[in-house]
Design a protein around this nucleic acid. Structure first.
Length: 504
RNA sequence: GGCCCAUUCGUCUAUCGGUUAGGACGCAAGAUUUUCAUUCUUGAAAGAGCAGUUCGAUUCUGCUAUGGGCUACCA
């Protein structure tokens, strides 16, 4: 029977959402939407010791910014609420008891310190079929002993009783069949009495089953424990409705070895988080894509193509197009190095696609911060002319500043190269010339000035670059008559006069 | 150490046994421009190694190497 597609993203609120997690969520979202399914946000806060205040809000805000929406979950609600695992204690307890009753799990009293000591004495110590009979647990202790230990308030954990020597198969949508022998699996802790909370493995299986999840699309770091998960489905008798698995390759460091980490961002100077994050404990600030000036569409597009492609040469896709084109089978098996330069290129492309009015509006705060007051129409014109030069809205100010603030300094190199002895006289001539132009349009002004240069047989390069220097303060910039058009006649003349006075 | 996954230009990738191994980012050169940028053109740049299967392997298999992940009362 075909079940309605239901997928989930299940982050743990231990800090800001890593960009790799964002990609995982994105793939889940694309998959859900293309099949008309549902996407659920579940918060896996089963590690009470690692809970970080604000992390959950951060996660929700991140997806809101990115345009990735959930149909059910924390902050939205839904028929399978609650979606926060810490609020589902009683549910898990039922299933833990079921496993205990069926003999697929047992109670263990070994303390963390004891286990650590055990690992220290034998390097490859693993709590499994070969060692469990030497430990303090309900398999080695009598029922009376177990009961009295619990009655006395002794803390315990519940472990999965994994039977050895079985090849457990995981059918992965990306990798095909993966086989792992159960002997290499350990008796994973499923539940801890200390906080009455399950661990990831148990909570995950129970919730995925209860929430009727059909596909588990998650990071490759879960592949080694996937066999344990299929075993748990079997222990519970849920094999029929076990979700299909897809393990995504990881995002790797741009340089060197290892997976992309928080530190790489600081080290290499680019964000690895969607939003800025202020760590409540350390006080450290980690930068986010939003604050770095990225468009959410660009981040989505960039991330989508990191480990997936539609099989053709196109690279620019809207969310709707991604939803149509995405397929799990086309996800690449190997880890992708994170290429920040490509990310910038995506943003540049999206900047170009934006309407000039919108970009101008985005630039306004920057202008206000610098006390620039100009007509909005002028900003639009400047943006139209200059946006192709930058990747981010916030990079616009620097190359555009001269439009809004007349230069007070003039580039020495350009003066040396272009400001000749007869330049001041020529510039004064130019002023009179410009004064007589009534139609100060790009075409007319250009025509008049060019005509003046040629009839007087002036050196084109020197005159024009000197002219540019008076307007821009530097020997670079857009087409000069585009500049005069935006500046207007008055300002153009004023700048020439000021430059002549300043440079001499 | 053990187990699992992976391996095409510097990077992201296409190729589903037969291709001059394609595209994109980045880089370089040339053209364009009164300047810078843009744009256009061009270029350099890849099948980890060794066996095997096959008429033929980047593509299939094995081994080695390398990279990655896991090996917690973290997820």
């Amino acid at each position: 029977m075909e079940r309605k597609v239901r997928v989930r993203f299940a982050p743990s609120p231990t800090g800001p959402l890593h960009i790799g997690g964002v990609r995982t969520a994105l793939y889940n979202y694309l998959f859900a939407k293309q099949s008309g399914g549902e996407f659920i946000l579940r918060i896996e806060d089963t590690d009470s010791t690692r809970f970080v205040p604000g992390a959950e809000e951060y996660i929700i805000e991140s997806f809101k910014w990115l345009g990735i929406t959930f149909d059910e979950g924390v902050g939205i609600g839904g028929p399978f609420a609650p979606y926060r695992q810490s609020e589902r204690r009683s549910i898990y307890k039922t299933y833990v008891d079921q496993l205990l009753a069926s003999g697929h799990a047992y109670i263990a009293f070994d303390t963390p310190a004891e286990l650590e000591a055990k690992r220290a004495e034998s390097a490859n110590f693993q709590y499994d079929a070969s060692t469990r009979m030497m430990m303090r647990n309900s398999l080695t202790l009598s029922k009376e002993e177990v009961d009295s230990l619990i009655a006395n308030g002794q803390q315990y954990v519940v472990r999965a009783k994994v039977e050895p020597n079985e090849d457990v198969e995981v059918n992965d949508l990306i990798r095909g069949k993966v086989v792992i022998n159960s002997s290499v699996l350990d008796d994973k802790v499923l539940y801890k009495s200390a906080d009455e909370l399950p661990t990831y493995h148990l909570a995950n299986i129970v919730d995925d089953h209860l929430m009727e999840i059909t596909h588990v699309i998650r990071g490759e770091e879960w592949l080694p424990s996937a066999p344990l998960h299929v075993l748990l489905y079997r222990y519970f008798g849920w094999t029929d409705t076990m979700p299909q698995f897809a393990h995504l390759s990881l995002l790797l460091k741009p340089d060197g070895n290892g997976k992309l980490s928080k530190r790489d961002g600081d080290r290499l100077g680019f964000p690895v988080f969607p939003l800025n994050w202020n760590d409540p404990k350390s006080g450290d600030l980690s930068s986010g894509y939003r604050e770095a000036g990225y468009f959410p569409e660009a981040v989505v597009n960039f991330l989508a193509l990191l480990g997936w492609n539609p099989g053709n040469d196109e690279e620019l896709f809207s969310m709707d197009e991604l939803i149509k084109l995405f397929s799990i089978e086309r996800c690449s098996k190997n880890g992708a190095r994170f290429d920040y330069e490509k990310g910038k290129w995506f943003n540049h492309k999206y900047l170009l696609m934006k309407e000039n009015e919108e970009v101008a509006r985005l630039m306004l705060p920057e202008l206000q911060a610098r006390n620039v007051e100009v007509p909005f129409e002028m900003v639009v014109k400047v943006v139209a002319l200059m946006k192709e030069r930058v990747s981010f809205v916030k990079d616009l100010w620097e190359p555009c500043a001269f439009f809004f603030v007349a230069p007070v300094e003039y580039d020495e190199k350009t003066i040396k190269k272009r400001w000749k002895e007869d330049t001041p006289a020529q510039m004064r001539e130019l002023v009179t010339l410009l004064q007589d132009i009534d139609d100060f349009s790009i075409q007319k002004t250009e025509e008049v000035v060019m005509n003046w240069v040629t009839t007087n047989q002036y050196h084109m390069g020197n005159v024009m670059n000197a002219f540019r220097l008076t307007l821009v303060g530097e020997g670079k910039g857009p087409h000069i008559f585009e500049i005069t058009d935006i500046l207007g006649k008055e300002e153009t003349i004023r700048r020439i006069e000021r430059a002549v006075a300043a440079i001499g």
